[in-house]
Design a protein around this nucleic acid. Sequence first.
DNA 1: GGTATAAATTGGAATCTTCCAAATGCAGAT
DNA 2: ATCTGCATTTGGAAGATTCCAATTTATACC
Lengths: 338, 338
Amino acid sequence: MGKRPTILDVAHHAGVSKSTVSLVLQRSPLVKAQTAELVRKSMADLGYVYNRAAAQLRSGGVGLIGMVINDLRNPFFTEFAISVQMALSARGYATIVSNSDEDADLQAQVTGSMIEHGVSGLIMSPAYGDATGALFDRIARGGLPCLQMLRQVDQRTDLFPFASFDYSAGGRAATRALLASGARNIAFVGGVEGREITQERLSGYLSEMRSAGRAPFVLYGRASRAFGRDAAKVLAREHPEIDAAICFNDLVALGVHSGCAEIGRRVGADFQLIGFDDIEESAQVYPQLSSVSCDIESFGSYTAYLMAEWLEKGNKPAPEYRAPVRLVTRSSSGGPDR
Amino acid sequence: MGKRPTILDVAHHAGVSKSTVSLVLQRSPLVKAQTAELVRKSMADLGYVYNRAAAQLRSGGVGLIGMVINDLRNPFFTEFAISVQMALSARGYATIVSNSDEDADLQAQVTGSMIEHGVSGLIMSPAYGDATGALFDRIARGGLPCLQMLRQVDQRTDLFPFASFDYSAGGRAATRALLASGARNIAFVGGVEGREITQERLSGYLSEMRSAGRAPFVLYGRASRAFGRDAAKVLAREHPEIDAAICFNDLVALGVHSGCAEIGRRVGADFQLIGFDDIEESAQVYPQLSSVSCDIESFGSYTAYLMAEWLEKGNKPAPEYRAPVRLVTRSSSGGPDR
DNA sequence: GGTATAAATTGGAATCTTCCAAATGCAGAT
DNA sequence: ATCTGCATTTGGAAGATTCCAATTTATACC
């Protein structure tokens, strides 16, 4: 196979100038419909493929958005990434997605690569760690639009707007629901101590427990199924008086769920359970898992919208936004089919 | 912010020529270590960022790989995509990942966009559908290296090498294991009828059932949790004699798992169960789920290896490769903690 | 010190598209 | 027939890098 055809070849084949072909490529209304059709036919005949590199070189950034996610294995983030990508794609942007695996160095590396590839905007659900400061400095210096989604790592929200869910309200709602359905001693399970996001989910629980005059009990840990499973056993053995738990996320809750099954504790009856995120699986396990639902899909489209507005109209998003959450009550916490 | 510095600015600042800077950029051993250091310092001082578009324009892109996946929501594919991406990243490639959502048109669109962005290779787990023929023709015409992983949609494996797991052997192993641990009537649950992949997983089951003189029973359906859940109920109601199932994948098996819990059937004791894929969750539910393990992680690195060899040395992979699978026996099928 | 060889550096051409200002074609009006 | 205004079309320059061939500088040997 010889070399790829260029717009010059197309122009020659169609009997017009390269400028006209270029105009056709960008759907300019300046060219006569008839001519445009002719050019398009030539492109098809020659098997022309647009060379974005050349275009980008001449006219700066073109519709490529980078997205860096801390943990793509977690279905919550997967769902987020996919919905952002689909929404951006519908708006004509291509997207590069990368998993940083909660590793600040890897994050710096992949983000750097994205910048080199000429992304015109960055959407991050950042990892925590030392290398992040330098990374955000670098982004700031490049003047690249960058959104912090779901996690706030850099404090300069004027530069890097932050959007997430109203987790604190979710924690309150979950706690109130458990108290209302008869739970006496509620634990909070999972989440790494000291992190912003743990703090938020926890704070709603704590404030609600306080005003109900109940003693809180917190069991910090990784946000994984495995931790949840262990936690269920530890709780049953060492704190049998605890009869309900709010989990840092659904992964932990599902771990507790299967841990309970393992030791013969009946979820929903002996032990009430509420998770966070409302991933698909939560409605599919038995007994079904209650969860603070985040409607990650519309959050994803909203993210795409924010980025598009910023890029196209220069409207920088508000420094901080909290999307509402909704408690979905299922059988694990006194729901309908309990 | 003014305009970005170019290698010319760096060259001037460091007192060398642009060519030297270019050489430093590509870590050429031709330039003296001392000079290189000097240049690097200038780059840091000026905040220089590499312009890949220009490089790509001049030297025909290298180092961007496109990956199109039919269903990124399925953890099996997520895991695959992530491990390919990580392995490629370690080899110095950047990766664009896209979800085609099993939609052939969307697949054609995102793939087209990747080609425009100048990917030098394509890794696909393709969607089925009409538009795929045209898409593969287009790729073939462009002479772009393209791997079909996990699914074979185009028959020209000389052009588009195909690699997957030895599912047929997995089906045989699962069936034999169930028969050995006392199952009388084994069903095959899930998978869309007529598809290559369903056929493969099914064929091992069928051949083993035949040689054991047992009547097979197949229940086709979508590869989702929801279908598995329904299937568990249907099976219990309409075919109570069936006491074991091999599921098309773990998602279906997990659906059956929770369906059984719902109707009070004890998985492992009353009803044995084996899935396919061995996703992380399978070891975390209770009772733990047996599964035909596919070691998707090393398959992912192998994929990256294949692509790198093809790109760098021109070694086109064998037209077809089957990675071995391994049956992991857990409590859902007479495993240790049954 | 002078020459042969190796190492390090350099200027110019090439890559493909978009942008800009200018040119062309055409209709109707002078 | 010339001019004006408008819709289309066009040639040349620019953009940042890499590649190539050529040049300069350093090293080694007699």
